[in-house]
Structures are given as structure tokens and as C-alpha cells.
């Protein structure tokens, strides 16, 4: 895979930054897009100093759908790879009681990312070889009482990526769906995660780089998750609805 420019949507997230570092280590220039982009300057400078590449910061609000077209208009150069690491875990208990906060979670995990990637895909179509990477979640593989608001938005995003891949195949745009299990990030800080099922952001960044290079379709970062989710999906609904997992 020859070097080009990577755009990370959600460039402040641990996974987004780790992905930027993995690409920069291979000589790619990186664009970090997030709210309050100016506060990301130290990260961009660090990446540029370590790897001798160009690293820039770009103001982007994933939940402000009307701003997305202008965001891409201002990007120069236009990237060959776009990684969407936008997302918010929410608070299941709060989101059950407060419907407005639930729809905000859905917007942050589905509407916003889908809109951002729609604009990217339309611009990439017919422009040569490019790749879109969407970071979804195993939580979208089956709705569970403990996190179905976040999970349902991720399920929507997973289906969106699947459809986009189907549409773009043969049009020079490859779409990768990444389904990390647990990742030790700011989002999960303080949670008691089982080490065998938990990946580091660095491992994820490297896995995403490899997935782009090898044109993978769906990536579970820790292979064990493919098995775990296959089992969870196979449980009959009559039984599943009584379980607490």
C-alpha cells in the first residue's frame, strides 16, 4: 500500500489517535478532525515529530449534520483513507429515562457517522482507490438490556457500512467494518474489563492499518470476539430475553 493521507474523524479518541500513529509510522500524512481542534495541536505535533510526516487538525462536529459538506470542502488534500472513530457510550440508565439523551447517543453513534461517511463516499466515488473504515461495535450484534441504546445505534451503523460496502464494491472504494470488543480507552476508564477480551488502542490502530492494507471487510480485533458474538447471536430469543448478560 503506497503512502497517502489519512483522515481520522473523531481524532481525539484514543482509538482515532492510535490509528493515526499506526499510519504515520508507515509514512502517511494524517488529518485529525474533532471538535475544539485547536486543543489537538499537541497530538498532531507529536505525530509529526515522531514520524517526520505532516499532521494537521481540522474543526469538525459529528452531530452538526449541516456542517459536514463544508467540512469536506475545506479539506486539502482530500484523503485516500477515512477512518470514523466518532462515538459516545452514553449512560444506559440515564438514557432509558431521558429520551432526548437517548436520541443524542443515537445521533453520535449512527446519524453523525453515517452522514460523515456518506459525504466521504460520494466524493471518493470514481476518484481512484480509497478506503472508508467505520468503527462499529460488537454491541451492535445483538441488543441487550445493559446497553441497547448504544448497541442499537451501532447495529444501524454496522448495517450502514455493510450496505455502503455493497454499493461501492467495483467503484474503487473499499469499506472496512471494525468491531472492537472491549478497548482500554478513555471511554472505558475505570471499568473492570476482562484482560483476555480487552485490546489496547495501539493494537486496534495496528489492526486497522493492516485491515486497510489487506482490504478486509469485517474485522474483530480480538478473534475471540467473533466466537463470543456468534454464541450470543445463536441464543434463541425466548431464552435470551430472560438472560442477564
Amino acid at each position: 500500500m503506497s503512502n497517502g493521507t489519512l483522515l481520522v474523524l473523531g481524532g481525539r479518541s484514543d482509538i482515532g489517535l492510535a490509528t493515526a500513529r499506526a499510519f504515520a509510522a508507515a509514512g502517511w500524512d494524517v488529518q485529525l478532525a474533532a471538535r475544539d481542534a485547536a486543543t489537538l495541536e499537541p497530538e498532531a505535533r507529536d505525530i509529526a515529530l515522531r514520524h517526520g510526516v505532516t499532521a494537521t487538525c481540522h474543526e469538525m462536529d459529528a452531530t452538526d449534520l449541516d456542517s459536514h459538506a463544508a467540512f469536506y470542502d475545506a479539506l486539502s488534500p482530500f484523503p485516500q483513507v477515512v477512518v470514523c472513530a466518532v462515538g459516545a457510550l452514553g449512560d444506559q440508565a440515564r438514557d432509558e429515562a431521558d429520551v432526548a439523551s437517548a436520541t443524542a447517543v443515537m445521533r453520535a453513534n449512527f446519524e453523525g457517522p453515517a452522514s460523515l461517511l456518506a459525504h466521504a463516499a460520494n466524493r471518493m466515488e470514481g476518484s481512484g482507490t480509497s478506503t472508508i473504515v467505520g468503527i462499529s461495535s460488537v454491541a451492535g450484534d445483538r441488543g441487550r438490556a445493559s446497553n441497547y441504546i448504544y448497541g442499537s445505534a451501532k447495529a444501524g451503523f454496522t448495517a450502514y457500512l455493510s450496505g455502503l460496502r455493497n454499493r461501492m464494491t467495483g467503484k474503487g472504494v473499499h469499506v472496512v467494518t471494525v468491531k472492537p470488543g472491549f478497548v482500554a480507552t478513555r471511554m472505558t476508564e475505570g471499568m473492570d474489563l476482562p484482560p483476555a477480551l480487552t485490546a489496547t488502542p495501539e493494537a486496534l490502530g495496528q489492526a486497522i492499518f493492516t485491515a486497510v492494507a489487506k482490504q478486509r471487510d469485517v474485522v474483530y480485533v480480538k478473534p475471540i470476539w467473533r466466537l463470543v458474538m456468534a454464541v450470543i447471536r445463536a441464543i434463541p430469543e425466548a431464552l435470551f430475553k430472560k438472560m442477564s448478560i
Binding site: P42, E43, R45, D46, L49, R50
Partner: peptide, 8 residues
Amino acid sequence: HFNRLLAF
């Protein structure tokens, strides 16, 4: 988390 290079 304080692991950035600042200048060279």
C-alpha cells in the same frame, strides 16, 4: 498520558 514530543 503525558507522552508527547513537543519540539526538536
